[in-house]
Amino acid sequence: MFVVMALLVGALYAAAFYLLLARSTVKLIFGLLLLGHAANLLIFSAGGLVRANPAIVPSGVEAPLPGYADPIPQALILTAIVISFAVLAFAAVLVKRAYVESGTDDSEEMRTTEQ
């Protein structure tokens, strides 16, 4: 399982960087999206892949029963997903506006700020 996850994370990173290097700004958004997924899965795998119970405290007991999975990576990923959703929504609007303003989605032609 661990090997499969490692390969998957690697493949996601590869795809993300491939898309980030593309000239089209639309592909850029997809690249950022995949980058976020890759990082989230990395946290998930690094936190430990175990078959265990959810870390929920049953009523009448002080602590969760032994043999529970670490809930922290899940909480981290949840936070990261929410943040990346908001940021990507902004990025999508930004790319649209940039297309309207400069009439191109080719990042090679977006050089007005570098002269």
């Binding site: 700004t25 980058l35 989230n40 990395l42 940021v87 990025a91 930004l94």
Partner: peptide, 23 residues
């Protein structure tokens, strides 16, 4: 807008690296 795309992309790349590091 063009500056925004460059700045946002690199910032988000940096964040993704940070997130991976934290993981």
């Amino acid at each position: 807008m063009e500056a925004g795309i460059k700045y946002a992309t690199l910032s988000l790349l940096s964040s993704a690296l940070f997130l991976a590091g934290v993981g």
